[in-house]
Design a protein around this nucleic acid. Sequence first.
DNA 1: GACAGATTGTGTATGCCATTCACTATGTAT
DNA 2: ATACATAGTGAATGGCATACACAATCTGTC
Lengths: 158, 158
Amino acid sequence: MNGIHNLSAGCPEFPAVLERVFGFAASVQQYMEAGLAAHGLSRARATVVWLVHRGGPQTQRALAKAIGVTARNITALVDGLEESGFVRRTAHPDDRRALLVQLTDQGKAVTAGLAAEYERHSAYLFAGLSEEQVRQFVATMDTVMGRLAQVATATADR
Amino acid sequence: MNGIHNLSAGCPEFPAVLERVFGFAASVQQYMEAGLAAHGLSRARATVVWLVHRGGPQTQRALAKAIGVTARNITALVDGLEESGFVRRTAHPDDRRALLVQLTDQGKAVTAGLAAEYERHSAYLFAGLSEEQVRQFVATMDTVMGRLAQVATATADR
DNA sequence: GACAGATTGTGTATGCCATTCACTATGTAT
DNA sequence: ATACATAGTGAATGGCATACACAATCTGTC
């Protein structure tokens, strides 16, 4: 406002913004987990279900790689999902070591239910915002996410 | 684009947006936890440290209420933080049942280090965005957070 | 075809986060 | 003085995630 602009940044009061981003992320995750819990799913298990829903029957190894956790962890998650009836393990047609994880009818029902619920909620969460505002919001999220990845690799290489 | 607008919403493709919000939240938390881990803190323990940093010496009960977890959980978290030297338990001056949790010098050093690090990163994360863009981003986060709270209480009451 | 090395899944052990229930010690109000 | 509430913790349980070790299987090479 005083005519002097910070070239390297573009906006003052960044730390406060990052703190709010942290709070926002926490709220979103809390909301998400509450919704999943109502359907008998935890965040970790829901991630598995969602990946199988998206990508079709997959080996546990593929799921481990996609989620970024150890294979052993997937075994435990699929154990739980199988016990509660969301997924089923089947023999891999070509590889006798591997197992294919696929959704049961109950698993398909819950993904459909969740998708419908999130669609309904989405309409409410962003109601009143213009198309342009939502577009901008998504764009900024993408920008920040990209930079986060860069910061992560930069600190990992150090 | 075809001239027909959805009055109740204002923007199409909401479900995709919510999915991206979920992804954004996950990325942010992953980034945050990585930064904390580099300083020897987990998310849960860092929350305690941050609250004590913000609010000064407090009872474990107050921390439990502020974070929204059980008192028993705080006992365990403070146990860990005390063992690694971030906080110290002191007798409450007026209430012999209660303990005050306060930061050690190491605890103060780590909060200062984290704050500095986040400030540096913030400048990078939002670099290139105009002040107005950042303001809009924060405003939208606030709007969505408020609605999330409403959805949460609505489903809790049901 | 046999053998070395990689891959797939899982047993065992460990650690953190978080909960419930039960209990002691202490504070508070009647 | 008695009844009730509050502060912290022990014991037990469960989910998430890891590391290490191991058997079964696949793959490439000689």
